[in-house]
């Protein structure tokens, strides 16, 4: 067999060798990638430019490039940061406090559970779980329908459950495994927040905690916990079990093993998980809409509120959105570096 001379079509679409790209593929790939870069960046550019426009420049039709098309003005920035001042800063601080503390809590508590589920074998008895569900149903019934005090019903329920477990647990044969627990935790994520937010709203209302940082932090943490468990379990599972065994033989407690061996080794995983949850809680809208009104108002609500009585205030909105993106970008750059570093050291070890 001799190698046939290539046709023009082949020359266009077939690379010279495996390290390079064919001319047509190259042109096509780069144009699509650059086109998508434009699609991604243009809305952000437009927001950025709009934040420097006067209302008249927005309503008069499109102006594209500052200094050439139109004279940029800082009026919107002045309004948001000087005129509104504290009213901007408060939701901004709220968002920072709520997003960061709920993320830290979710990642830490989730990591604990994820570690436990990778390295410790659990065998919850089916019978105990059925008993628990029955008792919980009873508690709900007593609280909501019979209108007993929830403090009372909860403690009765707890006492009932403890005595139930002690009395009957040795008769239960069938038990579930770690994967069932994991599935149960992850499946909570399927639940649309709109289903649970009404009762949570009522719960916090009863406790007098509506419109507080606490309510939002706890709720965000609960909503994001399944993600943390799910992602961290994968990262922990990759850490060789011998490390834990040798540390335990050296006399370390489980908690110490978790804190001094697993957490540092899973740093890239922690970074990725933290980043994802941080983004989710920073941008969260629906739960905040239900649970906060003024004091604990977060940035997404503040942005949404710019659509007020006089129609959408594009320039103010743009400022707020740009200001909201910046910290996430910074965090992403910082955390992204950690992720890639971790992967690199992992690759070197082979």
């Amino acid at each position: 067999m001799s190698v046939k001379p290539k046709s023009l079509w082949q020359k266009m679409w077939e690379p010279k060798d495996l390290q390079s790209m064919a001319p047509a593929t190259k042109v096509l790939s780069y144009s699509i990638l650059l086109f998508w870069t434009f699609i991604v960046l243009f809305p952000l550019y437009w927001l950025f430019v709009t934040s420097f426009k006067l209302p008249i420049q927005v309503s008069d039709g499109p102006y594209y490039i500052p200094f050439i098309d139109f004279e940029p003005s800082l009026h919107a920035w002045e309004y948001i940061f000087i005129d509104l001042g504290r009213d901007t800063l408060r939701p901004y601080m709220n968002s920072i406090i709520i997003a960061s503390s709920s993320t830290v809590l979710a990642v830490f508590i989730g990591s604990m559970a994820a570690y436990a589920l990778t390295r410790i074998e659990y065998k919850p008895k089916v019978g105990s779980i059925v008993g628990f569900i029955v008792i919980l149903g009873l508690v709900v019934y007593l609280t909501v329908v019979v209108k007993m005090q929830w403090q009372l019903t909860l403690s009765i329920g707890f006492a009932l459950f403890v005595s139930f477990v002690f009395a009957f647990s040795r008769y239960f044969k069938r038990s579930l495994g770690n994967n069932d627990i994991l599935f149960w935790i992850i499946s909570q994520r399927i639940m649309p927040p709109v289903v649970s937010v009404l009762p949570i709203y009522i719960m916090f209302q009863q406790l007098g905690l509506l419109d507080t940082h606490f309510a939002l932090i706890v709720t965000y943490m609960a909503v994001n916990l399944p993600i943390a468990v799910w992602l961290m379990r994968d990262f922990f599972a990759r850490i060789p079990v011998e490390l834990e065994e040798s540390a335990m033989l050296d006399g370390a407690s489980r908690m110490r093993v978790f804190l001094t061996i697993y957490m540092p080794l899973a740093k890239p995983g922690l970074a990725a998980t933290t980043m994802l949850i941080l983004i989710l809680s920073w941008n969260e809208y629906l739960l905040a809409l239900f649970l906060s009104t003024a004091d604990a108002q977060t940035m997404p609500l503040m942005v949404a509120a710019q659509n007020a009585t006089r129609g959408p205030q594009w320039w103010y909105m743009s400022v707020l959105i740009v200001v909201m993106i910046v910290p996430v970008l910074i965090a992403a750059g910082f955390i992204g570096k950690m992720i890639s570093k971790g992967q690199l050291s992992g690759a070197v070890k082979g």
């Binding site: 001799s2 060798d17 495996l18």
Partner: peptide, 22 residues
Amino acid sequence: GLETVTEGQVYIGAEDVTQVLP
């Protein structure tokens, strides 16, 4: 042919395959 040749030639049979795809 999985790696390009920086310099020199590869012959299979009588044929120069240095620039031929794998």
